[in-house]
Design a protein around this nucleic acid. Structure first.
Lengths: 316, 316
DNA sequence: TTTATTTATGACAATTCTTGTCACTATTAT
DNA sequence: ATAATAGTGACAAGAATTGTCATAAATAAA
């Protein structure tokens, strides 16, 4: 094995093991300890953060920021990655912000001039617009970390009505939608899954009350929604949609699965939703105007009529 | 200079030059042509797509899919990039799809097992939800290419009313918003900038009519909007918002700049908009319900009242 | 056709780099 | 004290790299 090959394998090995001794590696690679020492010195010069301790139980360690083996990309791949990362700039307070920008800097620096030119040209020609609200969400990292490592957090939360409560939760994950970050979590106070808005969290920390975490390994963003609606009373909402109405409903991600479309472009909605959401749906269908005709349930129609009357009253 | 250093520099050099001779490189690197030949052979073995021609005016070339110098990322950086790219999966028909997924495969393959585990854990815990409409946009690549290279395209477009027209355009760029792709472009028929919805484009190709491209080098997604509204008659729309109303307006990216917020969370809108958008705004404010009070202009209030009356009529 | 230019390959010796061995130092946990 | 561990320096054997030279083959241009 040539020296450069050995160094590359060594890099991968030390990253895998995190802790090792010179002798151990020497055996593994079939070279003398002296050679390994020289190799490790070279890796150090490459920037691999190695740290050593002498004495029994000593040995080498790789510090946290370990380096992955270098990867060679083609031009097209590099541009795709660059674009993808760039597209996220509309999201405020991403949990990865700092690392992402340092990675992009590295990327950009490594590229030959003409590839940079291509990227520069493209940068102002492709965009993914996402709504940006002014509400910042500074707690994303701790929520994400708790979700991954199954930790219980204690938070100070402001409910929709403005009341503040302290409650213990165990996050399932975080997601951004419509410009806001949300955190589905198991709430120990309510003994149920709830969705919290991250910008309404006033303070959060790891809980030290000794509450035992629940097992959420099988619960993730993909399936948590079914667990949330489970315990609520649901009513089927039916509405007829014009072509324009269909197009506008398609823009609502939470609605898409219950949307049925006919060949001519018109369609209808038929979906179970919790009763407590009536005011929301009333507003929603009013917003659709002529493009939607609500068939039922009657309570929803009544709710819509009342709202319309109120509004008409307001503007006379 | 050590051999490995030389090879790395050589890799960058050949990527920069694309075409070169052995003698040339030998002079540049201060080694003999024989050594360069051996080095180039080694690069070939690494997978660099080199191609050579003998004879005068011959020489070496790098084929299209040239490789960028390998980049070493730290674990955190790699995860950030992976997450960023992964976040784009909600966008249908991205112009980069194929390359992005091949890059991600490369990435994933190069990572040690435990980093992969971390990524797997994280994958289901973070998400950026973007509305996904069923409307596909198959023409994104050609639009983007035309925007970058200043080309004139001929397209078959279906307007909002359903009428189909053929027109020559020169794209400024493309962007996704609310689950749809849009293409601001200079329209040669209307001699003005317009925004087209990409899913309403039924066919598109490079124009061969000989229409001369206009100079759009200084026009990009960041400034094209100002060029579009320039020629339309605008009216100032004023509305008072409750706290809830403010929060909902913040979710609309096109509204954010004109939104003013008071200390107590309430706010007001004061923005110039083209008259033709009245029906849109009427619907929008009706959708806000009690949370917004439109102050003016009177025509807009009239429009709102009429719509409300129609709706109330519809539901009685 | 001839000539100049260019890639391509093989052989060999000079040079440089790499590696293992050995001797030695220093630190630290047991 | 002892054993385990990193770390350094010197040196020689061996391996890899490099330059030189000879030679072949293709091809564009004169």
């Amino acid at each position: 094995m040539s020296k450069s090959q050995r160094l590359l394998k060594l890099l991968m090995t030390v990253n895998r093991k995190r802790k090792f001794t010179v002798k151990e590696l020497a055996r593994e690679f079939g070279v003398s300890p002296r050679t390994i020492l020289r190799d490790l010195q070279e890796l150090s010069e490459w920037g691999v953060p190695l740290y050593s301790e002498v004495g029994p139980h000593g040995g080498y360690r790789v510090l946290n920021d370990r380096m992955l083996p270098p990867i060679a990309f083609t031009e097209e791949e590099a541009i795709a990655i660059f674009f993808a990362s760039n597209a996220l700039r509309h999201y405020s307070s991403l949990p990865f912000e700092a690392k992402l920008s340092s990675a992009l800097t590295k990327f950009y620096a490594a590229m030959p001039g003409d590839v940079r030119d291509r990227i520069d040209q493209m940068k102002n020609r492709v965009d993914l617009v996402a709504p940006t609200r002014q509400a910042a969400s500074p707690h994303l990292s701790i929520l994400l970390d708790a979700a991954v490592h199954q930790k219980v957090l204690l938070m100070d939360y402001e409910s929709r009505s403005g009341r503040r409560t302290r409650r213990e939760i165990q996050p399932v994950g975080i997601y951004a939608s419509g410009g806001l970050w949300y955190c589905p979590a198991y709430c120990f106070r309510q003994k149920a899954f709830r969705i919290f808005r991250c910008d309404r969290i006033h303070g959060i920390q790891e809980s030290d009350s000794g509450t035992r975490p629940v097992d959420l390994r099988e619960v993730h963003l993909g399936n948590v929604k079914s667990l949330i609606h489970q315990d609520q009373e649901c009513v089927r909402i039916c509405a007829e949609l014009t072509r324009e109405g269909v197009q506008r409903c398609e823009a609502e991600p939470w609605l898409a699965p219950q949307l049925h479309i006919r060949e001519d472009g018109t369609g209808w909605l038929d979906a179970p939703f919790p009763k407590t959401d009536f005011p929301f749906f009333a507003r929603f269908f009013i917003g659709l105007g002529k493009e939607a005709t609500v068939k039922g349930p009657p309570e929803l129609v009544t709710c819509i009529k009342r709202m319309l009357a109120e509004l008409l009253d307001k503007y006379s």
